[in-house]
Design a protein around this nucleic acid. Sequence first.
DNA 1: CATGAATGAGTTTTCATTCAT
DNA 2: AATGAATGAAAACTCATTCAT
Lengths: 197, 197, 197, 197
Amino acid sequence: MGQRGRKKGASGEESRALLLTIAAEEFANKGFYETKVSSIVKQANVTQPTFYLYFQSKEAIFQELIDSFRDQLFSLTKVSKLEPGIVSENVPAQITDHLASIFTFFKNNPDLTRIGFFLAVESEDIKRQLASQIKMNLDSEVQNGYFLSNLDTSLFAEMLVGAIERLTLNQLFQGKETPENLAAKMVRLFLYGVSRK
Amino acid sequence: MGQRGRKKGASGEESRALLLTIAAEEFANKGFYETKVSSIVKQANVTQPTFYLYFQSKEAIFQELIDSFRDQLFSLTKVSKLEPGIVSENVPAQITDHLASIFTFFKNNPDLTRIGFFLAVESEDIKRQLASQIKMNLDSEVQNGYFLSNLDTSLFAEMLVGAIERLTLNQLFQGKETPENLAAKMVRLFLYGVSRK
Amino acid sequence: MGQRGRKKGASGEESRALLLTIAAEEFANKGFYETKVSSIVKQANVTQPTFYLYFQSKEAIFQELIDSFRDQLFSLTKVSKLEPGIVSENVPAQITDHLASIFTFFKNNPDLTRIGFFLAVESEDIKRQLASQIKMNLDSEVQNGYFLSNLDTSLFAEMLVGAIERLTLNQLFQGKETPENLAAKMVRLFLYGVSRK
Amino acid sequence: MGQRGRKKGASGEESRALLLTIAAEEFANKGFYETKVSSIVKQANVTQPTFYLYFQSKEAIFQELIDSFRDQLFSLTKVSKLEPGIVSENVPAQITDHLASIFTFFKNNPDLTRIGFFLAVESEDIKRQLASQIKMNLDSEVQNGYFLSNLDTSLFAEMLVGAIERLTLNQLFQGKETPENLAAKMVRLFLYGVSRK
DNA sequence: CATGAATGAGTTTTCATTCAT
DNA sequence: AATGAATGAAAACTCATTCAT
């Protein structure tokens, strides 16, 4: 009776949180449509009506996960504007740090990241939004003379997001690189290019 | 009797091709799961059994589209290795051409591209494969001294694929840039970086 | 609201058993293919999903009925070996009893019998298995000198099964004979033949 | 063009006969429902409309096979009444011959037999009819004093049919016994019984 | 005599969701 | 806080059968 006993006594919040975690895992691994409510609740050891006690629908819980990803991501990028008065030499380091913090967040929340950055229909929105934030940073950096004055910041921001996305999946999630290294390599490449001269 | 008469007389290949086109459109716009066979056939003005006359299943037609994308993409990239004896100055132009041809293919086949590059489960595979092709090219170019000798070509290839992906969606498909311009801009940025100095 | 209320409160096992009974009846009367899930559930006053709550598929419920028949039949025949030390005169009575118990089982479970003995693909298997059990009994009886020493027990066992089958359908199920009478008649005929002398 | 040429030139009767043969095979092996018209015509190298040129429906061709079986079987049993004036000693041989001719027919027409004797819904009818013929023969033989005067000929006829059925399937079709041997064994057993004394 | 192309009418099965307790 | 039992609404797929030629 241990398990059952515990479950009955569990606070609602616990059940809710558990469902959320399991759902994230399932969604991340199998996508929205291949994830069945029945499978989520089975793993959480609750019944289907319980699910609906905490979430209005399958879509709602998915959305909640997306929103959670978006919120965390943007609370991260909000604080990371280059400070205006910074000295030139430190710019790369600053950018690297910023990038590393994003990679760290992704690494620590792989399920959420898969959902919000790759699976959701809104993923495109989110990436656009991220690109837009990056663009704003770039613009001010251009203004401050750190970057090429004729840089197409919009396009560049999108390229960065694309790079982030691929490296997250193929390097970070594969455990091939740490967030810091990845960030450093990216920045170096983008700053100085790959041409020999 | 005009309509009916025409349909009965239609060649099978025509019906098949029509279904394929409509399916591509639907899949591209609504994804695999939200695309219903019933909706495809309605637009093609045939009945459901006709669909199954030409395709084994909804999955099969989806797969056929993916395969078509993959095949075309890789028949494109297969021909585009940098020739060994090329003079240094022409390398950027060559790369640009290659990239432009990819963008052109994407632009001319937006539905197929959405399916094969973004919607399919195999999309990751396809991108990995593309990255791998690019890496091989890069490797030989490094060997020939065009690029930094310590370049992490694998990582760089992935960044390129990420950039291609984003720009395809947000610039090319939006009609903001031509394939050629996009390719040129990308190459310039990656070759020389964005740093002012 | 009476009906609806009652249904909701019904125990699952009840619904399951009801479906099983109705399915047996339908299968027995119309065969596997002409029996539609829709018709079973209609008679059980439940909806189709309820059916799938208790049975994996139409095939599964059919199989369950077959297995039930087979299990009951063989738990019946397992106990009925002639005891070794029996006196000669009692052998016919013993055999008759055994046969009667089979006929009784068939009579009490006509739907199941129709399914397992006549409709199922496995019916042949089941009959073969029954014949094989009978053959083993016959062999030991031959050994004990009750029967002709040169009796082809395998062939004879099959003839018995054939006779059982026909009489079940045309005498027992028609209510023309009781299990006991049928058994007695069969035994007499097989033991002593029909020849006048 | 050989094949096609031949087909075009084929007489209608040839196509019809071919379809009938293939259908018999398929029905015999897979049953009515698992046999698809599409599969029959594929094996016959014709198209579905051709099938409907010769048969009104899938049911019709099945019925035709059943009727063919029934007709042949009963043209066989019609001729085989024991002649009234026969001498006592020859009765067993006569019966054996009769039985052997049935087994021979079954052996030479296994597909048809499977269909008419085992698969068809009318199989029961056909067996009943066969039993009824046998009963009539038995009755006259009883009258003539060959058999026990109190023999329940109806029941005995059914037992015979059951035995025939099983032995056909498990001995004859398995190639374990020739029609003649099988008939002889059956007759011996039924005439004199299996009791030792 | 034969076919390429198409369909009407169904059937099983799935799944998110909800009562009643 | 939770559940046993049930369902509405649809989806993919099948197959015998038939036009038009």
